[in-house]
Design a protein around this nucleic acid. Sequence first.
DNA 1: ATCCTCCCCTAC
DNA 2: TAAGGTAGGGGAGGAT
Length: 595
Amino acid sequence: MAEATFSASRLAAARRVATEARRGMPQLQGPHRTSRENDNFMSEFMGASRLHYIGSWKDRYQRILETMPPPPPLVQLAPGRTRVIAHIDMDCFFASVAVAGRPELEGLPVAVAWSDGNAEIASANYAARAFGVRNGMWGSQAKELCPSLITMPYEFERYEEIAEVMYRAVFAVTPHVMGVSVDECYADLSALGSPEATAATLRETIRTQTGCVASIGIGPNRLLARVATKRAKPDGLHALHSVAEGRTLLTDESVRELPGVGYHIAQKLEAIGVRTCGELRAADAGRIRDALGPKVSATLRGYADATDNRQWEARPTRKSIGAQSSWGVRFATAEEAESFGRQLGEEVGSRLAAHGYRGKHLTLKLWRAMEGAESTGPRKGSMGHGMCDHISRSITLPSATNDKALIAREVTKMLREVSIEPSKLRGMGVSVGTLSSAAAGSGAGGGSGSSRALPARVAAAPPATKFSPEKVPAWYKGVSGKAPAEAPASKPRSGDLGQMMARMTKETGGIRPSKRVRTDEPQTAEPPTRRLGKANGCEEVADEGAQMLIQFGRDLGLSSLMFAAHDSDLTSGLDPERVTAWLGACDRVEQQCQK
DNA sequence: ATCCTCCCCTAC
DNA sequence: TAAGGTAGGGGAGGAT
Ligand SMILES: Nc1ccn([C@H]2C[C@H](O)[C@@H](COP(=O)(O)OP(=O)(O)OP(=O)(O)O)O2)c(=O)n1
Ligand SMILES: [Mg+2]
Ligand SMILES: [Mg+2]
């Protein structure tokens, strides 16, 4: 539907901008894509990887912190008052930067990814999200959902500059800032007068100084501030004024909204009938503990109750330093693998020294292709790691070190001892922990290590897991073909209709879902994708709109959906032809569901 | 109990 | 050309 709303000439102009932006990025070209073909592989990979960029950002954040006076202790609270925490997070950060200063892209669906092929989407703007495009999605799927999608390249230097402007704006409000990531931080506003006015001003400052938008959530703790931000987005401010208000808000939200609950923990909870925060709160503590363990269950039960006991640690000390790569890693011989391990070891040694650390504990992490999954990847020519076993081995060094050569030698030894056929290796990582300061005079440490050739033996790797294509786990994104089967929700819930309508209206900028979205049907029907698909002669309608609805339903964890359209859709600026087809299909869907 | 190793999971 | 890094929390199971 929205497809028709982008004019061909605007799209053409935008695509020219995208092509031009991509042309100016020489490091993204060249035929040498693997560890074997390219001597410079490691640094080229790190320079082109957005995960390396966001993963190493905190290191560079130190430089901003050094220009700031250390924060005074947090003010004590007057009795009976609670803290006021703000969570500041840039809206679709990479995509916003891509659009900023490029008027040709404004209002169009834009994603940022390494290529315009099937690369993973790092960030999609909200125009693209209205089609169901999401961060982390494969490019091909994104373009199915949204054929007009404009794909822009990474611009790491601009992210760095804009993030610094954003952070300086926050530091101008308070010294109590906790950096989370390149686009996101917490600020303690407890000592300030009106948090909401302060936050509104801060949003405006960030917008004018960066050309990008930040949303802000405010709450009595970090958990609720973060939950509020989600509600505020895009381009909004939302405040939760008490733990009680937060608890009420969380009651019907998915446990997935809680920090620390990702795909797997949500699955474990669902397996014991817990889907919402309210259900988690009400569930038997012993059951949750059995499923998740003592610490995780305690933390999450607290979160579900809107309480967050994490200490405010604005500048936590590093506990480990490491480097890894699991893309383009292919070896023919042990020498090649060992050379790669040495490079990683040297890289880690340099990073340790650069930060004034030494470390005593050394870990080698290896990706090994599963038996039957040795072919290069999900598709011919892909240099991804594919389905792998993960093997890690660690040793404790006789003394803390940051000596590149010593680390490289120890990595080589471990690599030999773990005895993995080099051709099966798909990734390698080296990490050093148990850190101490290199400056502190203690044990002369790093000293060239010729001292002890400790026989730090390490066990050989276990046999490879056997890979079978039919049993690719639902969470694995690397294999094309079938979407993971819908896990039917255990129970229909009330309140979904209201939530869904509110969310759709907000996220699509006005498109309303049907007047009949039912979640109270038993799970007898096929998932809605099927009912709207070609099998029912509905290909006219299996478009972005349908995909979007289906995605909303999935996001809400609904077991089944029924769609219908409002007559008023015809008068709300949507393409009448599409709406007519849509209405017809909805009738059929409904009939099918009723019998 | 607490520690250790080898994972697993999560957030960006 | 699908550029899948980095760091932290913590669980399982065994040793101390
Ligand atoms: N799977 C992901 C998630 C994020 N990022 C990068 C790109 C994002 O722009 C940036 C910030 O991550 P956020 O989670 O804050 O996502 P966005 O800022 O893109 O969107 P939102 O408006 O939801 O914050 O990190 C990434 O490369 N890959
Ligand atoms: Mg963001
Ligand atoms: Mg963020």
